[in-house]
């Protein structure tokens, strides 16, 4: 059997979902028997080197770079999975939604209680920096998403079961105990 090719990325997330991928523990050895990782922080491949079967997306889109990465994933992956709260619904970063960006930036760089030494009151605007979006978008607002795996983070068992089911072409068996948040 050809190995399924998997890519992963963390957009506006905290890498918690990736930690949860690693939480499959020793099963990672079993996993690499059936999948091959391509672009992913797990193997540090920075750019797609081939078309992939499955793309796992952690986090929603908070800036222009997130959007480019997500669209790149959509182009290069047959199946795209929104992994975890932020990818599905925006999550914690989306708490800024509804607050004007100017206010957010002023709070972060000028007036906020933790700002110590920004005497010139500089708000970063180097052309190299990604540009913030007006709000944090869940992935499905930007590209078509095929599956959603809930949790903050999704349990390792959930990620494991979903990946194995996809690779083997089986129906996903996701009982309440596995998808439940608490």
């Amino acid at each position: 059997m050809n190995k399924a090719i998997v890519a992963t990325t963390s957009l506006a997330g905290c890498f918690g979902c990736h930690m949860s991928i690693l939480d499959i523990d020793e099963r990672i050895l079993e996993l690499i028997e059936v999948v091959e990782f391509n672009k992913s922080p797990i193997d540090d491949i920075k750019k797609f080197t081939k078309k992939c079967d499955i793309g796992l997306i952690e986090g929603g889109c908070c800036n222009s770079e997130n959007v480019h990465v997500l669209k790149d994933f959509r182009e290069n992956c047959k199946i795209l999975i929104a992994l975890g709260e932020c990818a599905i619904m925006g999550g914690l970063p989306a708490m800024r939604n509804g607050i004007p960006i100017k206010e957010c930036l002023e709070e972060a760089y000028i007036g906020g209680p933790t700002v110590q030494q920004n005497h010139q009151k500089i708000v970063p605007n180097d052309p190299e920096l990604p540009i913030l979006l007006d709000k944090v978008y869940p992935c499905h607002e930007v590209v078509k998403i095929d599956y959603y795996l809930p949790g903050c983070p999704p349990r390792a068992d959930l990620i494991w079961k979903a990946l194995i089911a996809l690779v083997k072409g089986e129906e996903m068996d996701l009982p309440y105990e596995v998808i439940k948040f608490d």
Binding site: S64, V67, H68, P100, I101, K102, L105, V123, P124, N125, P127, I131, L132, L133, D134, K135, Y137, H140, E141, V142, V143, K144
Partner: peptide, 26 residues
């Protein structure tokens, strides 16, 4: 169409460009 949300990157970055005096180079 199978998929359409009306998301437009140029529009989405407009507010931040104005707030930081940047040109949208997306």
């Amino acid at each position: 169409k199978d998929y359409e949300t009306g998301f437009d990157l140029n529009l989405a970055v407009q507010e931040a460009c104005e707030a930081t005096n940047r040109i949208a180079n997306v």
